[in-house]
Simulated scan of single mutants.
Amino acid sequence: MVANKKALSMGMILLVSFAGVFFLIMMPIFGNGMTGLDYSDDLFNKLSKGSSYFIPDVKAQIKDFEGKQAKAAVKFKSEDEAKHSLAVMAKAGFSAAQAGETLNVDVDLGKMLSKVVDDADAMYHDDGAKVGAFYGLDKDAEGKLAMKAWWTLLAGMIKPLQKEKQIPMANAVNLVNQKAIEPAYNFYGIKAESILDKIPAASGLLIFYVVYTMWYGFAIFEIFNGIGLSMSKSKIKKEV
């Protein structure tokens, strides 16, 4: 079965060393009991948060909607969900009429979006206690339930506004959801880091990933070559 002992030996050495490095990666030796995967995941989450602070730009874009009324019939999945969003609106000083699973919203869009963005800013900077205390909802010490309620309300406003040909308003609502609430909610509790401060670590991980992938590829290639399984260009038969 062995066609090339040298190639087979090289392949086995590469595969065994690959497995050894993988074993080290999975050990909790990378600080604070983290494995290599935990460390890399934590680093890139911090870098992602550091590059996802769009709130100043969002604040500038929603200024045009101050004093403009937005009317929309927002349908929720359940009456409880509608009631939850209504409670959040009421705490922030806005009102809506509930009819079952629907909230009939009539608000100063710029004022409401400004409040939501301010809350998102606090959440982005991990001050969820401030948001949670303001809304005073049960089991919402970190403000995440309030932010989820705002996201659900705003998401439900987009299509009704579009149907009413209020495209700029719909776009502003969507902007706040995507660029303010989502980064603040998803990265809550994660420390933001700048890529400029982590260039050596980030570059090292990316280079290691490429090298480690090729390492495994060459191991398999040499093993297959050693047992006589290889790819080569077939010879072209010439007709006599």
Rank of each mutant, 00 (worst) to 15 (best):
L153V: 00
A99D: 13
A201D: 15
Q61M: 04
E222Y: 14
F94D: 02
L161T: 02
G50V: 06
K68E: 12
F76Y: 06
G226A: 09
S78A: 02
L86Y: 03
L145F: 06
K144P: 05
F208I: 00
L175E: 08
V176S: 09
N45A: 13
K46P: 04
L47Q: 07
K130P: 01
K5E: 08
S203K: 13
S17G: 06
F44T: 06
K63M: 12
A96P: 01
Q178S: 15
K49W: 11
L24W: 10
G136Q: 01
Q61C: 00
L103A: 06
T102A: 08
K115G: 03
F134K: 14
A3L: 08
K77L: 06
L24N: 11
T102L: 04
K139F: 04
D57M: 14
D121Q: 15
M112D: 01
S51P: 00
Y209D: 03
D42R: 13
H125C: 06
M12K: 13
I55G: 10
N174R: 13
A155R: 13
L103M: 06
I195E: 06
T102W: 03
D126W: 10
T152D: 07
I195D: 04
K139A: 09
M231I: 15
D64E: 14
K159M: 15
Y185C: 07
A73Y: 01
K235F: 13
M112A: 06
V88Y: 02
I158S: 05
G128I: 01
Q69E: 14
Y53Q: 08
E222N: 14
G67Q: 10
K63F: 04
M147A: 09
F187M: 12
M26S: 10
L43T: 02
K6R: 08
F65L: 07
V21D: 04
K163L: 14
L24K: 11
V117E: 07
P200Y: 08
K5T: 06
L47H: 04
L109Q: 02
Y39F: 11
Y216D: 02
F44E: 04
G204F: 06
K115L: 04
G31P: 08
E222S: 14
A146L: 01
V116G: 03
D138R: 09
F65N: 05
D121M: 10
S203F: 12
A122N: 11
Q162P: 02
K191Y: 07
K148E: 09
Y212N: 01
E222C: 13
A146Q: 02
L137R: 03
K144Q: 14
E193N: 11
K159D: 14
L175G: 02
V211F: 06
L24Q: 12
L109E: 01
K148Q: 10
M89T: 03
